[in-house]
Amino acid sequence: MNPWLVYALSGVALFSVGLVGLFSHQHVVKRILASNITGSGVLLVLVALARRVPSGPPDPVPHALVLTGIVVSVSSTALGVALARRMARLQAEATHSPEHEPRSDGEGP
């Protein structure tokens, strides 16, 4: 079996594990992790396919695409994490507020 094929199949397995995880989890952080894993699977397939050259160094174009992809996935993770933090803060505020009468001080403290 060619080495690239092993990694390409591994990437396929990663993609489906990540995708199923993405749909079956409810927690935000788990979903972010799952989407990262899905992305890793796609990138792994891409790099493995770049390795199919008969001889010499692998195809540099997919490598450049994957470099871009990793950086973009990091920025999407960072944005997701920022949204998760915002949600956590809003939830924390929502759980604290019922100690007051919500109607009497609607304008907040």
Partner: peptide
Amino acid sequence: LEAPDIALVEAAVGTGLTGALLMHTLSWT
């Protein structure tokens, strides 16, 4: 897979910074 550029970026950005960011988020959520 003979992609040292990607290995470097993955180790530094994909794993290092993302891991730190996620760990950091856990302390918030």
